[in-house]
Amino acid sequence: MKAIKNIVVGFIVSFIGSIPLGYLNIIGFQIYAEFGIENVVQYLLGVIFVEAFVVYFTLIFANRLVNNIKLMRVIDVFGVFFLLFLAYSFYSYSNQTAANSNYLQKYILYSPFLIGLLLSSINFLQVPFWTGWNLYLINGNYITTTFKFYYVGGTLAGTFAGMMGFVFFLNTIAQSGAHFFKYLFAIIIPLVFIVLACLQGYKVYKKYIR
């Protein structure tokens, strides 16, 4: 029963955490739109391969990571600049012409799995995310560390399902709302990342400066 509880809790937390708009979801959608379902599945497998290690090690070393103020400060500050970089990247992408916008073509030759592996590896914001959640779940007795591999398996299934669902959702918008979709990369997504960067900046100020 505890093993099943670990799987369910891991799935729910990861599923909800993977739904918000993020660069991994957006790139997953681009891969799906240009290269199909098989390639996006390989991409997502690359993403969750890295996440498996992140979830496992943050589960084991959660207390140590939280108490390492210098490391957490570097990660939090990096998050501000990383989100601003994403806003600029998607805005720049929206200004490309149809002739040169297919920039993923040269990267897809290296395998979608490797793309997912690389992009997930530089997603350092998942470290504080999983550290915080793992501490909360352990302290609240929502999960049992004895069955940690069941928990990790549940998180991976939740991430895969959440991201795949979000990819399908964006594709539906692209197919049925072309007028709205043309503003998605140019305005909406960059603004979302700018707002997230401001919130992250306020978190840094509140946590380390004030």
Rank of each mutant, 00 (worst) to 15 (best):
T155N: 07
G17H: 04
Y136K: 15
I122N: 10
I189M: 07
I7L: 12
Y88R: 12
Y32R: 01
A99I: 15
L86R: 06
F81L: 12
E51T: 11
Y208K: 02
N63L: 11
N6D: 09
P128N: 03
F129C: 02
Y202I: 11
G22L: 08
L24K: 10
T159W: 07
M1D: 13
G10N: 06
Y23P: 15
I209T: 06
L83N: 02
Y32H: 09
N95F: 13
S120W: 01
V192I: 14
K5T: 12
Q126L: 14
A178L: 12
F57P: 05
Y107W: 10
N39F: 11
L135H: 03
N63P: 03
K2T: 15
N67C: 00
Y150L: 10
N141V: 06
W130G: 08
I26V: 15
L59G: 12
N25Q: 04
N139P: 08
A174M: 10
A99H: 12
A33K: 15
F129V: 12
I143M: 06
L59W: 03
L45W: 04
Q105F: 13
W130L: 11
L104I: 12
L196M: 13
I16D: 08
L135K: 15
N139Q: 15
V192N: 07
E38V: 15
K182Y: 07
N39R: 09
F168Q: 01
L170N: 03
E38L: 14
Y107P: 05
G28C: 07
L44W: 07
V13E: 01
N68D: 14
